[in-house]
């Protein structure tokens, strides 16, 4: 199967090779400078949480990585390609290898769960046959524990179910990298914890690297290998959860009180 081959190939790569490299990335909106010389590496197999205040530019950061927003300066290398310089076709090829989980889930209201999951497959894997597509859809839904929702409308789903379906849609192309934009926002603590554990399990199953934007410290504890503190538009610190929790720096302490 194509998907398994992809996973085996990706595991052959060295774990130290950065799959995402950001160098001196800056982005302003009018007079509001959101990112200032932001530099950061994400290594193969690593799960990094980006922690910062609301409006500090966390979502802008991952939208720059996926090419939805163009940075003013700096380079963003994703799987060896500089995103701001890519043509639309090249960008689409990279996007097939990078999953993005939106804060609002961004499930298509006009489509059923099945159609939502089929959509990226039909776009990126146009040569796939109907049985192959069906198999992948069922597999992705089974992995998030919602195979029974396949023919439901997205409006019939609860918040937690929508998040799981969005996660299944993100994973259906077996991406090498996943970008999560506040995956537990708006969920109750129990569902939030379930989603965090699911993210951790799926990262192992699919052998992905990920950047997770989150305010939820319970989620951070479960999913993070390391944490990047985004303060005043810069990568203020990067360390493990326990190290940052013990930090005496006031700017870091604010997040752990």
């Amino acid at each position: 199967m194509i998907a398994k081959t992809e996973i085996v190939e990706s595991t052959k790569q060295s774990l130290d090779v950065p799959v995402i490299q950001l160098k001196s990335v800056s982005k302003s909106f009018g007079n509001n400078s959101v990112l200032r010389d932001f530099t950061f590496d994400l290594k193969k197999g690593e799960n990094v949480v980006v922690l910062g205040k609301s409006g500090s530019g966390k979502s802008v950061l991952i939208k720059c990585i996926i090419g939805l927003i163009k940075p003013d300066t700096g380079t963003i290398n994703v799987l060896g390609k500089n995103i701001p310089e890519l043509s639309n076709e090249e960008l689409d090829r990279i996007r097939a290898k990078v999953g993005f989980l939106f804060q609002s889930n961004a499930l298509y209201d006009s489509m059923s769960v099945r159609e939502n999951l089929e959509f990226p497959l039909r776009r990126h894997k146009a040569k796939m046959t109907k049985p192959q597509i069906d198999e992948l859809v069922v597999e992705a839904l089974t992995n998030v524990g919602l195979a029974h929702t396949i023919d439901m409308r997205t409006s019939e789903l609860s918040g937690g179910m929508k998040k799981r379906i969005a996660l299944a849609r993100t994973l259906i192309l077996k991406p090498e990298i996943i970008l999560y934009d506040e995956p537990t926002t708006g969920l109750d603590p129990i569902t939030g914890k379930e989603i965090s554990k699911l993210m951790r399990e799926l990262a192992k199953t699919y052998n992905t690297s990920s950047i997770i934007i989150s305010h939820d410290l319970n989620c951070v504890k479960i999913v993070a290998d390391s944490i990047v503190m985004l303060i005043e538009g810069k990568c203020y610190a990067q360390a493990k959860y326990e190290e940052l929790e013990r930090s005496t720096d006031k700017k870091i302490q604010e997040f752990f009180i």
Partner: peptide, 15 residues
């Protein structure tokens, strides 16, 4: 679709 990021999701899906 715009305010619920569905248009961005579509772009990310190669459309």
């Amino acid at each position: 679709m715009k305010v619920t990021e569905q248009i961005d999701a579509m772009e990310v899906s190669g459309t």
